[in-house]
Design a protein around this nucleic acid. Structure first.
Length: 548
RNA sequence: UGGGGUGUCGCCAAGCGGUAAGGCACGGGAUUUUGAUUCCCGCAUUCGUAGGUUCAAAUCCUGCCACCCCAGCCA
C-alpha cells in the first residue's frame, strides 16, 4: 500500500527524526501499530487509519502490530476482533503481529505500582461526580483531591486491595498526580485505573480493575517499541499526558511519538461506531454487514473492490484540517476500479415486453465481457426476437433529445439489432404494456453491411425466453419517506453478472445535500454480492435523525 | 473570556521566500453498439483577514476573525 501522497507532514516528521539519528540505537527500524478497540465493526474511516499506518510500514520498512485496544471490557468482544481481522485481510494488508492491550495487564499493573512508589500516583476515594466537580472548568483551576497526599505505602496497600476486589465499582480510582491547575484538563490528575467487576472477553474475571486509555495506550506503545503512534486529531490534547505516562514509566529513549491527523468524514455518511451499533441493535439494518452500512463488511457486501477504498484514501490524502469529503469522490474510485475490472451484463429492472414481429427462430450473440479490458473474453447471449426492455427505455411522451425508444422511432438493442417501434399496446391505465417492433437484419451487431437505418440510442434488453430471473434485494431508505423523485436517464444502471437479469428492484435511496431523497442508481459497473443481491456502488447514507 | 489545533478553487489537497501541483465535481469538444468508458480543452492574478519585513510572501513577523477539540471512573 502506498502511503497517501498527502501524508507529507507525517513523512516530514519521520524523515527529520531519521536524519537527526533519533533511531540509530535501534538500527533505524521503525515500528507502528493499528490500534482499534474491538467494540464494533470497522468502517471506512478505519480504512484511512490503516492506509496511513500500513503506508508507513511499507514506505519505511517498519513493523506493524495490529493491537486490539481492549481496556474497556464492558464493550468489547471477539466478534469485533474477528471483524477487524477480516476487514484487514479483505483489504489485503498484512500486519506483523496481533497483540492485545489485555496482554499487557500484568505489566501495566506493575507500572502503576511503580508510579505509586515514585509518588506520582495516588488512590482517590472521591466519587466520579466529585472528581468531575473538583476538576475545575475551562477557565478555573481544579482543586486537589483530599486523598492526593497519601503516602506511597498507603496508596500501595489500597491499590492492591482494589486489585484484590475489596472495593465495589466506583469506590476508588488510581489517579496520576500531575497538576490540578493545568490549562490542559487532561493533566488534572487523570484516572489511571478504575474498578469494574466486569468479565473481560479475554481475561475473564482475573481482573476487577482496568486501565484507562490515556495510560494503557502510551505504555502499550512503549512496551511494543512503537516509534510512531498515529492517531486522530481529538487526541492532540492528550499528547502531553501520553508523554508523561511513558516518561514516568521509565522507558528509555527513543520513546514513541504521537502524531495526529484528521479523521475521515464523508458527506451524508454516518461514521460513528456508536450510531452504527444503534442501527444494528435496533434492527434498522440486518446487521453490521448490511450493504447500507459504511462498515467495511457492508461495503464489501455491496460489491466494492478493496482497491477502490485504498485508492480513495490515497486520493483524499492526510492532513490536519477538519474536512468532509464528497461521496462523489468515493463513487469515482469505485467506478474506476469496477470499470477496469467488472464484467458487464444487461439487466432490466422494470420489464416491458418488446416483440419483434418480423423475426423468427433464435440465434446467439457475442458480447465482450468487459470492453474496457483487453482479452476480456466473450459471452454468448441468446436472442429470440422477443425481449424485455426497461420501462425507462421507452417513452410515450419523449422529452427533447430523447435517445431511446418511442413510437415510430428506432433504437439499437445492444449487441443485437436496430428495431423500430410500430405499435404500442396499452394497458387499462394507459401505460405501455407491449411494444410491437420491426427489426432490420442488416443492422446486426458487427455487421459491415450498409444500412439506411440509424439509431441514436442503445438500450439493454433481456431475452424473454432465455433471460434469468434474479432476486433483487430491496432496501428501505434509512433516510426519509420521500421516494422516487424524478430521475434522469443518465442515472441508468448496468449490473454486472455472468447472466442477464430481468426482475424488479427497488433502488437504494440516497439523501442529497438539499435533504431530498433520490435514487442511488448510477450508470456504472456493479458486482454481484455474496448473498445474491445486486449491488450498487454507493455508500448509503444514514441520516442522523434518531435520538442521540 | 483557559489551553490545544486548523484556515489554499464547490469538495479534498500539494506548497516550506522566487512568482498557485493533482484528484473529485463542473463546463466545452472528439471518438463510442452501455447518455458509460476513453480522449482532448477549460476551471484560484489568488491562498481567512488587516497590516509589516523583503527586490520578491500562500510561505517570515504582528494584530484580528472563523471553525474544531478538551471538564468519561469511553477510546
Amino acid at each position: 500500500m502506498k502511503l497517501p501522497e498527502a501524508a507529507n507532514f507525517i513523512e516530514q516528521i519521520i524523515n527529520e527524526e531519521l536524519e537527526a539519528g533519533k533511531f540509530e540505537s535501534r538500527g533505524n527500524k521503525l515500528q507502528v501499530r493499528f490500534p482499534p478497540e474491538p467494540n464494533g465493526y470497522p468502517h471506512i474511516g478505519h480504512v484511512k487509519a490503516m492506509c496511513i499506518n500500513f503506508g508507513v510500514k511499507e514506505k519505511y520498512g517498519a513493523k506493524l502490530n495490529l493491537r486490539m485496544d481492549d481496556t474497556n471490557p464492558a464493550k468489547e468482544d471477539y466478534e469485533y476482533v474477528n471483524s477487524i481481522i477480516d476487514a484487514i485481510k479483505w483489504l489485503g494488508f498484512e500486519y506483523d503481529k496481533l497483540v492485545f492491550a489485555s496482554d499487557y495487564y500484568d505489566r501495566l499493573y506493575e507500572i502503576a505500582e511503580k508510579y505509586i512508589k515514585d509518588g506520582v500516583a495516588y488512590v482517590c476515594d472521591l466519587s466520579a461526580a466529585e472528581i468531575t466537580a473538583t476538576r475545575g472548568t475551562l477557565t478555573e483551576a481544579g482543586t486537589p483531591s483530599p486523598y492526593r497526599e497519601r503516602s506511597a505505602e498507603e496508596n500501595l496497600k489500597l491499590f492492591r486491595e482494589m486489585k484484590a476486589g475489596v472495593y465495589p465499582d466506583g469506590a476508588k480510582v488510581l489517579r496520576a498526580k500531575i497538576d490540578m491547575s493545568s490549562p490542559n484538563l487532561n493533566m488534572r490528575d487523570p484516572v489511571i485505573y478504575r474498578i469494574a467487576h466486569v468479565t473481560h472477553y479475554r481475561t475473564g474475571d482475573k481482573w476487577c480493575i482496568y486501565p484507562m486509555y490515556d495510560f494503557a495506550h502510551p505504555v502499550s506503545d512503549a512496551i511494543e517499541g512503537i516509534t510512531h503512534s498515529l492517531c486522530s486529531l481529538e487526541f492532540e490534547n492528550h499528547r502531553p499526558l501520553y508523554n508523561w505516562f511513558v516518561e514516568k514509566a521509565g522507558f528509555p529513549e527513543p520513546r514513541p511519538r504521537q502524531i495526529e491527523f484528521a479523521r475521515l468524514n464523508i458527506s451524508n455518511t454516518l461514521m460513528s461506531k456508536r450510531y452504527l451499533k444503534k442501527l444494528v441493535d435496533e434492527g434498522v439494518v440486518r446487521g453490521w454487514d448490511d450493504p447500507r452500512m459504511p462498515t467495511i463488511a457492508g461495503i464489501k457486501n455491496r460489491g466494492v473492490p478493496p482497491e477502490a477504498l485504498k485508492k480513495f484514501c490515497a486520493d483524499v490524502g492526510v492532513a490536519k484540517a477538519y474536512s468532509v469529503v464528497n461521496q462523489a469522490q468515493l463513487d469515482s474510485c469505485i467506478r474506476d476500479e469496477l470499470n477496469a475490472d467488472a464484467e458487464r451484463a444487461m439487466a432490466v429492472i422494470n420489464p416491458l415486453k418488446l416483440t419483434i414481429t418480423n423475426y423468427s427462430g433464435e440465434e446467439e450473440l457475442l458480447f465482450d465481457k468487459n470492453p474496457a479490458k483487453e482479452n476480456c473474453g466473450v459471452r454468448n447471449i441468446k436472442f429470440t426476437g422477443s425481449v424485455y426492455i426497461d420501462k425507462d427505455d421507452f417513452s410515450l411522451n419523449p422529452p427533447p433529445k430523447y435517445k431511446r425508444l418511442q413510437k415510430g422511432g428506432t433504437v439499437r438493442l445492444k449487441g443485437a439489432y436496430i428495431v423500430r417501434c410500430d405499435e404500442v399496446k396499452l394497458d387499462k391505465n394507459g401505460e405501455a404494456e407491449e411494444l410491437l417492433c420491426t427489426y432490420f437484419p442488416e443492422t446486426r451487431s458487427g455487421s459491415t453491411a450498409e444500412s439506411q437505418i440509424k439509431a441514436k440510442g442503445v438500450i439493454q434488453w433481456v431475452d424473454a425466453k432465455y433471460g434469468v430471473d434474479a432476486e433483487f434485494r430491496q432496501y428501505e431508505s434509512l433516510l426519509t419517506d420521500e421516494k422516487y423523485p424524478d430521475q434522469d436517464y443518465a442515472e441508468r444502471i448496468n449490473y454486472n453478472s455472468e447472466k442477464c437479469f430481468k426482475g424488479k428492484a427497488e433502488p437504494y435511496l440516497y439523501e442529497s445535500e438539499n435533504g431530498k431523497a433520490f435514487q442511488l442508481m448510477r450508470t456504472g459497473y456493479y458486482k454481484k454480492s455474496q448473498d445474491g443481491g445486486l449491488l450498487l456502488s454507493e455508500i448509503v447514507s444514514l441520516k442522523d435523525n434518531f435520538n442521540k
